[in-house]
Design a protein around this nucleic acid. Sequence first.
DNA 1: CTGAAAGCGCTAACAT
DNA 2: ATGTTAGCGCTTTCAG
Lengths: 340, 340
Amino acid sequence: MKKKVTIKQIARELDVSVSTVSKALRDSKEISLDTRQKVQAFAKLLNYRPNNIAVSLKNRKTKNIGVIIPEIVHHFFTTVISGIEREANKAGYNVIVCLSDESFDKEVINMETLANGSIDGFILSLSKETQSKKDFHHLREVIDQGMPLVMFDRVSDEIPGDKVVIDDVEGAVNAVNYLLDSGCNRIALLTTVDYVSVGKLRTEGYIRALRQAGKEVDESLIVKIEDIDNCEQQIALLFDSGKFDAVFAVNELFAVTAMKEAQRRGYRIPEDISFMGFTDGILSQFAFPPLTTVDQHGLEMGGMAAKMLIQRLENDDMGDESYVTEVIPTSIKERESTRK
Amino acid sequence: MKKKVTIKQIARELDVSVSTVSKALRDSKEISLDTRQKVQAFAKLLNYRPNNIAVSLKNRKTKNIGVIIPEIVHHFFTTVISGIEREANKAGYNVIVCLSDESFDKEVINMETLANGSIDGFILSLSKETQSKKDFHHLREVIDQGMPLVMFDRVSDEIPGDKVVIDDVEGAVNAVNYLLDSGCNRIALLTTVDYVSVGKLRTEGYIRALRQAGKEVDESLIVKIEDIDNCEQQIALLFDSGKFDAVFAVNELFAVTAMKEAQRRGYRIPEDISFMGFTDGILSQFAFPPLTTVDQHGLEMGGMAAKMLIQRLENDDMGDESYVTEVIPTSIKERESTRK
DNA sequence: CTGAAAGCGCTAACAT
DNA sequence: ATGTTAGCGCTTTCAG
């Protein structure tokens, strides 16, 4: 078992000082070409690698980015992470992922542990619980310490900082308009309870689009699903009671579940009922029929978030008041669950 | 912007030495109760948090676990990560996730960066490219340095170490037997190219089950899918040329894609054709009809891998030759794509 | 009971 | 061109 080689060892064996080695390794021209080559060759021979931790401590930079998301078993977040990774790696940063499991406490704990030196900055999406409690002291603390933080998707207006979101309202408006244009008249909505910011916004978009089209909003066609586990029942209820020729769901899971229920009841898709989801994920792609969705472009969101964070990390001169909120445009991914 | 408070500051303000503070904070009884309380109270007041990096450098432990997986947009890996996280957090470890993107080079780079002090040990699943190249020097190097490493799912026999896998062969045998028992006679296989270890093993199980049942293996019913992007075409070809009443796929994506093709061609599931997948993910759950699968129990795998790693991390006295390979049992998750 | 000092591995200002 | 030194924040041995 070969122990890791350090600068000190190289110095000793080459009979020079550690600072000479350090400088030589960074190819400083303060050191003679001769020594530089000698040191570099020897270092390569021994397969020397600087110790990240020591470098971090010295430089007060870790080159790590902390990402906190509510859930990893979720295609959208997963694409965001991919986007972050890609952009971060490009700039020489590593990504540390922590899961809040939609829990406020876990979110707080994760932030605390990461904030104490492990990372240079945060990228995060709020847990449901945090959103409903509206307690953001942990974010404030971190910001107070001068650690940059960018929020994505599930963000809060109460916290100043860089953000990257999609226009949920507009996305929903477009989705509903699309359905309307394809000849649908009575559009049901499958949404979440109100404290989930994106659910609320998408519901708003649904209502707005209907109003703009001069349609009335039929409350009986709106179902707010509290819990993913019993969404099937709530959806079945909708089918029992309501008449509709389209379903717009604020996520793909609700949409696909509803499609299955429709098929069980013998409806043809999209001839009898059209379906539109929000968030383009695996489910949408592989559902039968493939689901038309509002694409959130998670990869881009992640990439953008990473870029914004790194930007701040490398320019500490950026005014605190230069915060921006980037809005990633959504688009409709047409597939076979809607009519043309 | 409040800067982070250090031991030094506390010492200065309380007019004691840093070592006193350090000890007092860890409640060492070398220090008088009085001072201990005073220091602790003051530390709490200032919201003191030790700097992880400094502690890591000093202790030569980071309390971080590095996880390298081929792809994150993949439900199985995602559940494994959840399992790792849960177990790791319980023991006070953080998880650093890096993606190899199925690329050998990225795998090597990720391992190198993490290995230089950022983490205490690795959990990894090999990239496809690494598996086909059979170049494992980067694993050897890390192990050589005395850094524990546990592999899961996509493992290699050439590397000694702890492993956690499922019995892919047995899982496939069970799956095929299940199909046979339900009255299927001609079972098609949708698999991957041979260098993907799990694909190969599952294919082996398929063949073995057939032989054991006294059936001949019809090569025309076996399709090896090279590339996910054109799996639809290869599957369509199978439907064009072969006669079969069941399909066993080595992953859920292939299974679901095949189901869609079957439905397009007007077959009833499972009356005309039964379908069985491998890996229980979102797709299987929400497919129509819901797909019967071989459940890999990713959460457990992750949890187990984490436990094994932490075990080694905290007992450096463990003999190098005590390596074990844990086999997580698979189970069949019955849903509606197969007959009883 | 408290503190001085060394050291983890590295960098960089400041000698020489 | 090279070396000495101090220090990043913390722990720990050893002296007092």
